[in-house]
Structure formats: structure tokens, C-alpha cells
Design a protein around this nucleic acid. Structure first.
Length: 110
DNA sequence: AGGGTGGCTATTG
DNA sequence: CCAATAGCCACCC
């Protein structure tokens, strides 16, 4: 298993996440076969080529919060993007119970 | 090689 | 909810 393969799988899964749903770093890591690679996932997302259409913003940490820093305006680009596609963000937090996407399980968001 | 640092997580207090 | 702890792992000195 080369790291290129892992990277490809990561992109593949990422592309599957529907708008309006989210996943966590650790979840994505497990999906690509790297059970302890949550951090690795975060690093990869940070290296995503500019212009990529992959939904990096649909990836949150295990608390349903963004792990990205706030911008100059004091707000967070990631959370705004999520809200724009229908994800409810309250107090900077997304309810994973309601918006988490599971490729094998749960149906549409409640 | 060895130590510090993160876009992580799970568990405890 | 916050803080500390403990694993984990890639990257950069």
C-alpha cells in the first residue's frame, strides 16, 4: 500500500460526501484504512490543490467543531460553507448525531 | 537518531 | 464545559 494509494482513496471518499452532511477526520482515516491516521487526513486536506472541487469543508473534528483557525473577520470559512449547504451550525458546533454521513448506514439528515 | 509540534481522539476528573 | 493524559503519526528541525 503506497501513500499514493491512500491519498487516492481519501480523495475518492471525500468526493462521496453529500452536500449537507459531514464526517470526521478519524472517520475518514478509518475509511481509507488508516485507523490511527486522523492527523494524516487533516494534513492531506491542508495540502489539497487549489481549485480542487473536493468538499474539504465537510470534514470536522470528533466534537463536531472546525479545527481551522478563525479568519480576519473572526468567523470561519468552513462553517459558513456548511451553513450555506444546509448544515445547522449552533455555537460553532455541528450535531454529528444529525449531520454525520455514514457511507454504510444512516439515511438522509433528520 | 531524538525532540517538539500539530487542522486528532478517547477517557477522566 | 474545560483541562489533563495518553496514544497515534507525519513533519520539521
Amino acid at each position: 500500500m503506497s501513500s499514493d494509494d491512500f491519498e487516492r482513496q481519501l480523495y475518492a471518499w471525500l468526493a462521496e460526501i453529500p452536500a449537507g452532511r459531514v464526517v470526521t477526520y478519524g472517520q475518514l482515516a478509518r475509511l481509507v484504512g488508516r485507523p490511527n491516521g486522523a492527523r494524516w487526513v487533516g494534513r492531506q486536506l491542508g495540502r489539497l490543490p487549489a481549485g480542487s472541487r473536493l468538499p474539504w469543508h465537510r470534514v470536522l473534528n470528533a466534537s463536531g467543531r472546525s479545527s481551522l483557525p478563525l479568519d480576519a473577520a473572526g468567523s470561519n470559512r468552513q462553517l459558513r460553507r456548511l451553513q450555506r449547504e444546509g448544515v445547522l451550525v449552533l455555537h460553532g458546533r455541528v450535531s454529528l448525531a444529525r449531520f454525520r454521513w455514514d457511507p454504510f448506514g444512516n439515511g438522509p439528515a433528520v
